[in-house]
Structures are given as structure tokens and as C-alpha cells.
Amino acid sequence: MFKIIVLVKQVPDTRNVGKDAMKADGTVNRAALPAIFNPEDLNALEMAIQMKDRIKDAEITVVSMGPGRAAEIIRESLYRGADKGYLISDMKFAGADTLATSYTLSMALRKLEPYNVVICGRQAIDGDTAQVGPQTAEKLSLPQITYAETLEAIDTESVTVKRRLERGVETVKSPLPCLITVHSSAAPCRPRNAKRTLRFKRALTPSELQASSTDYSAMLESCSYLRIREWSAGDLQAEPQRLGLSGSPTKVKKIENVVLAHKDAKMLTAADADVESVVVELMGEHII
């Protein structure tokens, strides 16, 4: 069976930041930001489903590193076409920069070997770094194809992908296994499938199962596909000093709330006299 792994992240929706997003002390009020499926990870999931459509005998495993609630996006992936999910969750991962994150993900991927291809979004909107994909590839000695836009061809030996570059496109063929990061210009993810949504509605992580007021354990016993696996640092056999804050070479020295130095702007209206005065002034100064 052809094994496709998709790395997904739940992120605060930084694109729709309201006025209450910052607390009075200048720190980020995470509670005020809705948690969403990282947009480009949805493009990645779609490319994985397209691969499965073409290869047929394929299985999509979704892996997410994050807190317990990240199980939400694993379920969302199951509704849309993934087959299995793993949540990589541990307090020890807290404060991880991209290097510690890619180390953690690479240890999870090692446990999932053998696989044929790893796919993820180009970047997450809470950091916009685009570093975790290439760094994970390096840790696993996999070739990488970044900024994938279109899946041109795939078989069990190789994949051909069209990449979106700043000023053009490039088609690259890589042997498998490899890691692909997907650009926002790729096909949007197909919506939830009704049958799948019913089937996976009760897919739960062990933590969720424990916290649930209804006892679903008998159901999960008989329907193993409903189990979202959960791995901690111990399960990954990771070196503790390479995780979280201690595994992160970059340190945040300072966070500043953005304060604008006010200029004394000339306040005008759309009235003819006002607009004319600006134009005349700029022309007088030979700016226009």
C-alpha cells in the first residue's frame, strides 16, 4: 500500500485579528483568536487526496503536533478524505522554534516508516516562516519539493510537481520518498464528505475519550478506525534536550506591541477644495 503522510497544524486565525486580540499589557490574547486549520495545510491535504485518487491503493495518515484541541483538525481531515490521524502532544514541546518542531515531527515520521511521501503546507499563518517543511526533510534525508502548485504525475517510484516561484513556474521530478510543501495557489481542499463525516464523527484521541462524559470506549474498541493515536515525547524516543524551548536555538529577546509614532497629518475630506489643495501642493513641490 502507498502511504501518504500529511503534516497539519492548527493555528490562531491571525488574518482576522480583532481589536481585542492584544491584551492591555501588550501580549497576545490567544483566547480572542479562533483556532483554524492552517490554510495551506488544507491545500496539502487536497494534494494528498489527489494522489490517493490516482494511485488507488493508498492510505492517508494525518499528523499534527499541538495541544489536545488540535484533534479538531485531524477529525476535519478525516471528514475530507484522510484515513488515520496522529496527534503529537506533550508539554515538553512547548516553546519549540522551527528546528525543535522539525526534530519532533521527524521523530514521529520515523515511527511511521515506511512511507512513500510526506506533504505539508508551505507555511503556517502564525509564523509565516516556511521553515518546518525543509527542516523536516533534511532531518530525514528526504529530497524536498517546495511551493508545489499542481500534481503533474505520480507513481510508486516518483512524483512530478509544478512549483510556483516568485516569477514563474518550474516542473520538478523527484524520486520517492520525498517531502512536498504546498503553496496557496494549489487547488483548494474539497469539502467534507457527508458519509465520511458521519463515519468519523466520534473519532477521538485517548485524552478526549477520557474527558468525555459519554463512554465511547466500547465503540472505539469495535471500530478501531475511530481511534486518533496520541504520541508523547516518550513515545517518540526523542532526546529531551532537542525538544521545546531547550531544543530551540532561536530565543525571543523582546516582544514589542506595535506603537505608532503619530505624525501630524493634515486632515482632509473628499470635498473638491480639499482634494484640489493636496494636488496643487504636491505639484508645487514637484512630487507629481
Binding site: 528546528l99 516562516t129 516556511a130 521553515q131 525543509p134 532531518k139 517546495t146 511551493y147 532561536t250
Partner: peptide, 23 residues
């Protein structure tokens, strides 16, 4: 921080276990 730099720099940083800040 171009198509090339953003593809290459993280891979090199990972290899060297060095810190990298984007953009």
C-alpha cells in the same frame, strides 16, 4: 527571502543545528 533562499536556508540551518529567522 526568495523562492531560493526560503527553500535553501532552512535546510542548511537544520543540517548545522543553527537558528534561523525568516523575513
Amino acid at each position: 527571502a526568495t523562492s531560493v533562499g526560503r527553500d535553501l536556508a532552512p535546510r542548511v540551518a537544520s543540517k548545522l543545528t543553527a537558528g534561523l529567522t525568516a523575513d
